[in-house]
Computed example of a mutant assay.
Amino acid sequence: MERENPIPKRLKEARQRAKITQKELGIRIGMEESSASGRMNHYEKGRHTPDVSVLQRMAKELNVPLSYFFCESDSLAELNRIMGKMSEEERNSLIKQLSDKEPNM
């Protein structure tokens, strides 16, 4: 069974969290003003998928890690977003804490 592309949903959530319009985001990442809203709408509706370089610019503008767009579940996406704001030291500490609790397999 093929999974649904998570990018449209993640993009819309991140943009709404940033409280900016589709057009504003498009312009901020370098799209022409006349086509920014339409192109962003196509990305959010899943009609077109942005390439990685466009996703990188969106991630930077929306203050989320690039990997956020690819998370299959909401909980993983939220963890990814939160961890993206942490320092490397904080992430390493969290990894150690979680690894210590990980069941042996």
Rank of each mutant, 00 (worst) to 15 (best):
I27M: 11
I27E: 08
R28Q: 11
R28M: 07
R28T: 03
I29L: 05
G30M: 11
G30V: 09
G30P: 03
M31V: 01
M31G: 01
M31T: 00
E32Q: 12
E32D: 14
E32A: 15
E32I: 05
E33C: 00
S34P: 01
S35T: 15
S35H: 08
A36S: 06
A36H: 01
A36E: 08
A36Q: 07
A36Y: 01
S37F: 02
S37W: 00
S37H: 10
G38M: 10
G38S: 15
G38D: 09
G38H: 06
R39S: 03
R39E: 11
R39W: 00
R39A: 01
R39Y: 04
R39I: 15
M40R: 02
M40F: 05
M40A: 08
N41W: 10
N41K: 13
N41Q: 14
N41D: 10
H42G: 04
H42E: 15
Y43S: 14
Y43A: 02
Y43D: 05
E44G: 10
E44F: 05
E44N: 04
E44M: 03
K45N: 13
K45T: 14
K45C: 10
G46T: 00
G46Y: 02
G46A: 04
H48T: 02
H48P: 00
H48F: 08
H48L: 12
H48R: 14
H48D: 13
H48A: 08
T49R: 14
T49N: 12
T49Q: 13
T49D: 10
T49K: 12
T49M: 07
P50G: 07
P50E: 03
D51L: 07
D51C: 08
D51M: 06
V52M: 12
V52L: 12
S53E: 15
V54Y: 04
V54S: 04
L55T: 11
L55K: 09
L55H: 03
Q56S: 14
Q56G: 10
Q56N: 08
R57K: 15
R57A: 13
M58R: 03
M58S: 04
M58Y: 01
A59K: 05
A59Y: 11
K60L: 12
K60C: 03
K60F: 09
K60S: 13
K60M: 10
K60D: 13
K60T: 12
E61H: 03
L62F: 01
L62G: 06
N63R: 13
N63W: 02
N63H: 14
N63T: 11
V64H: 07
P65I: 14
P65T: 06
L66K: 06
Y68L: 11
Y68K: 11
Y68V: 05
F69T: 05
F69P: 07
F69M: 10
F69S: 08
F69N: 09
F70I: 14
C71E: 06
C71Y: 03
E72R: 08
E72D: 14
E72C: 02
E72H: 09
E72S: 07
E72W: 00
E72L: 09
